[in-house]
């Protein structure tokens, strides 16, 4: 039974609020403030209150190209990650094997390895002298550039968000019930129609949630595009990093960060509205 929480219950949330305020809200305020500064032509930062940095970014066609590239990359990787994770998640969800938990751990094991280590692994697999290209050379297909370009970043990002997509799917499969498929079978539905008419629609909320999670993670991913793009792949996260620590243009880095944040929030908001519309 639900017991009404006393009015003082919110006090329990205080530690969490304090951490959020100190570690998230305060830095965001500093970031927003920084984005209103200007950078002089000499590269020196000028303390002021203007939108000059934003204007400069907006007038630069590179910003828009990069935005489009970033979003397309994220959408592609999120979609591929989901296509790969969905059958695995479904298998795991339904499995009655006693190795089920072991399989689940194996499926999310990549999370236990640092992003940098994984990229080094990919170099060994995708590099010009890597495993795949050795095989391609052997069968006479020649060397394919699979790393230090967009292809490499797509492969790396897809792999890195797959475990998250898996977890999100597994968590969202709650409404799925084997009995519903049995019911569909007795009503004359073959395996394909059972999947598309019953199983898939019931997992759709999980699919949406998992796709969004993967999308957000890829938009904000930095290590993989940075290391696997070989300096030829420009996305929002790498640009922010470059501005902050290579060109030391802090106002630009801050403005780009705020821009990326607003962009994501708009996308999530639009998606939430769409979902709510469809449900009613």
């Amino acid at each position: 039974m639900v017991r009404r929480v006393k009015r003082t219950g919110w006090l329990l949330c205080m530690p969490g609020f304090v951490v959020l305020a100190v570690a998230f809200v305060w830095p965001m305020i500093i970031l927003a403030r920084m984005s209103l500064n200007e950078t002089a032509d000499t590269g020196a930062m000028v303390e002021t209150f203007s939108l000059a940095t934003y204007r400069k970014l907006a007038e630069d066609s590179f910003t828009w190209q990069m935005t489009a590239d970033s979003l397309l990359l994220s959408a592609t990787c999120a979609t591929f990650a989901l296509l790969l994770a969905y059958p695995m998640a479904l298998l795991l969800f339904r499995s009655t094997s006693r190795f089920r938990h072991l399989l689940a751990i194996v499926a999310v094991a990549p999370l236990l390895v640092s992003g940098t280590a994984r990229v080094i692994g990919w170099l060994a697999i995708l590099g010009d002298r890597g495993m795949i290209n050795n095989i391609l050379r052997f069968v006479g297909l020649g060397v394919q550039p699979l790393i230090n370009n967009w292809t490499g970043v797509r492969i790396g990002l897809t792999e890195s968000v797959m475990p998250y997509a898996m977890l999100a799917l597994l968590g969202g499969f709650g409404r799925l019930d084997r009995l519903l498929e049995e019911a569909a079978a007795t009503l004359g539905a073959g395996p394909m129609r059972r999947f598309w008419r019953v199983t898939f629609p019931l997992t759709l909320p999980a699919v949406t949630a998992a796709w969004l999670l993967a999308f957000v993670l890829t938009v904000s991913a930095f290590i993989t595009p940075h290391l696997m793009g070989g300096g030829r792949v420009f996305v929002l996260a790498t640009e922010i990093f470059d501005a902050a620590s290579v060109t030391l243009d802090w106002p630009a880095a801050a403005a780009l960060s705020i821009y990326a944040l607003v962009l994501l929030m708009l996308l999530l908001g639009a998606q939430a509205t769409l979902l709510r519309k469809r449900r009613t």
Partner: peptide, 20 residues
């Protein structure tokens, strides 16, 4: 025969109605 080729009308204990 698999169930979808049998034409048996089944009412399950928990009904198993399609929630969507």
């Amino acid at each position: 025969l698999p169930p979808h080729h049998r034409r048996m009308g089944v009412v399950f204990q928990s009904y198993a109605l399609f929630p969507h």
